[in-house]
């Protein structure tokens, strides 16, 4: 019960603190602008290259927008505390670590999902790509599974913040690499075998494939195995992330690096 309180109160407080730092009228267009222009950038690149349709890039990059919030949400939850010099104080508390950091990350992730959905809608109109209701429901289901997998992966990335300083940059670089490896912007069959192998062990790759099948009117039967793989990848990273939180917190205490900035 206490963990639930830490999760909820800590999350709400940190989210309110965000808007004390940044005005909503700047935050909203700024967070919306990035995914919208990213989708348009790759859709027009695809048009020029005559490779795949706008729908391909729209779905791939909308999923990327969700992934980025999953990666950064956790990374920032820990990295932000280090930057504010409050990480050591926070870790001195007996609170459940997962509740502590997940509570800070979840509001950002929910914002990311809303932002991705809005960017998807705006770009659908701009690029004149239309989806039927059942296709949108399928996409939402695939996005939910991918969001879970990316958040779990983000937990692993974020836990590195207990030991190192440049986690945001690392998450940024990993997120950037996902533009290529996950097949968001390049059809997987065009990528070399080893890149495909790496991608299959990362979140998002199977989720995007499932999203493209469901977004093209395919059934859950056709995309079910991909969703199951995405969920399995997410579960593996969740377990790894929880273990990393424990080990790296211990290492951070042992080597007295929690306050390095």
């Amino acid at each position: 019960m206490n963990a639930l309180r830490v999760f909820a109160v800590g999350g709400v407080t940190s989210y309110r603190a965000l808007f004390n730092w940044i005005d909503p009228w700047i935050f909203v267009p700024q967070t919306l602008g990035y995914p919208i222009f990213e989708i348009l950038f790759f859709a027009y690149l695809g048009r020029f290259a005559s490779v795949q349709s706008d729908r391909f890039f729209l779905v791939g990059n909308a999923f990327m927008a969700i992934a980025i919030t999953g990666f950064f949400g956790m990374g920032q939850a820990i990295g932000g505390e280090r930057r504010s010099q409050t990480l050591a104080t926070l870790l001195a508390s007996p609170a459940n670590r997962l509740a502590l950091f997940l509570g800070r990350a979840v509001p950002s992730m929910l914002t990311g999902v809303v932002v991705a959905a809005t960017a998807f809608t705006v770009c659908s109109f701009v690029l004149r790509v239309h989806f039927a209701t059942h296709e949108l429901l399928g996409l939402a289901a695939a996005a939910a599974v991918s969001s879970f997998a990316c958040t779990s992966f983000g937990l692993c990335l974020g836990s590195l913040g207990l030991r190192g300083r440049s986690v945001s940059l690392f998450a940024d670089t990993v997120g950037g690499s996902m533009l290529l490896i996950s097949g968001a912007n390049v059809p997987l069959e065009r990528l070399p075998g080893f890149v495909r192998a790496v991608g299959s062990g990362l979140p998002l790759t199977h989720g995007i494939q499932a999203g493209r099948i469901l977004g093209a009117g395919g059934s859950f039967g056709a995309a079910g195995h991909l969703l199951a793989r995405e969920a399995l990848v997410g579960c593996c990273y969740l377990l790894l992330g929880v273990a990393m939180l424990r080990v790296l917190e211990y290492e951070g205490r042992r080597s007295a690096t929690l306050e390095t900035f």
Binding site: A49, L179, R190, L191
Partner: peptide
């Protein structure tokens, strides 16, 4: 990453 995406698409 960006150059590789362009290479694979423009190939």
């Amino acid at each position: 990453v960006y150059a590789s995406i362009a290479y694979y698409l423009l190939d």
